[in-house]
Amino acid sequence: MYQEEFLPVVFKVELRSEQCLSVEKWQKLINTILRSYVDDISKNEECLIGHIKALAEIDKANFIKYSCINDLNHINSEVHCKQNNINKINMIINSLVSNISENESCQFLEKSCLLAEKAGDQINIEIVKNEKITIKKTHHHKENEVCPICGEHHLHKD
């Protein structure tokens, strides 16, 4: 029941800056992006936020994790990073919100990224479209093949 209500939308976002910025600066910047994304989502009262979380990956072992469960709450972030100045971050956003289409969610994110770009820190943000994956594409076998997990034939709609 709830699985269908809170369909996950996954975004991959690449953030770059001309000059290296401090991790705190990035933390704030991404916070601003997520804040405006959450604000836009929350304008529609039908949309319930299950959990919007993001992992901003600095390198293999350093990251900032974000979490938001409603528009009233602040966006939690936790820095796990020993580095300081960086000019590139790859971020994954996992957005579990009810009553919103993937398209609409994406538009909100694009808008907040644009706003952040215009804010003047000379950063470039790209939402990687072709790697944006939804639950529909998570099958690990073809329609006519035996499912490697349960060993049976079944359709993806099952």
């Binding site: 699985q3 809170f6 996950p8 939308v9 996954v10 991959k12 979380k53 993001a54 992992l55 990956e57 293999k60 072992a61 350093n62 990251f63 994790k65 796990h80 994954i92 996992n94 579990l96 994956i133 939804t134 639950i135 594409k137 998570t138 099958h139 690990h140 997990i149």
Partner: peptide, 25 residues
């Protein structure tokens, strides 16, 4: 749920080995 799991990625970055169940299949 969702193709790209955030929690398991975080765990791996922290150096833990995680077994995924096929997320969101």
């Amino acid at each position: 749920i969702g193709e790209v799991g955030i929690d398991n990625r975080q765990m791996r970055m922290l150096g833990y080995d995680v077994l995924d169940l096929f997320g969101g299949c």
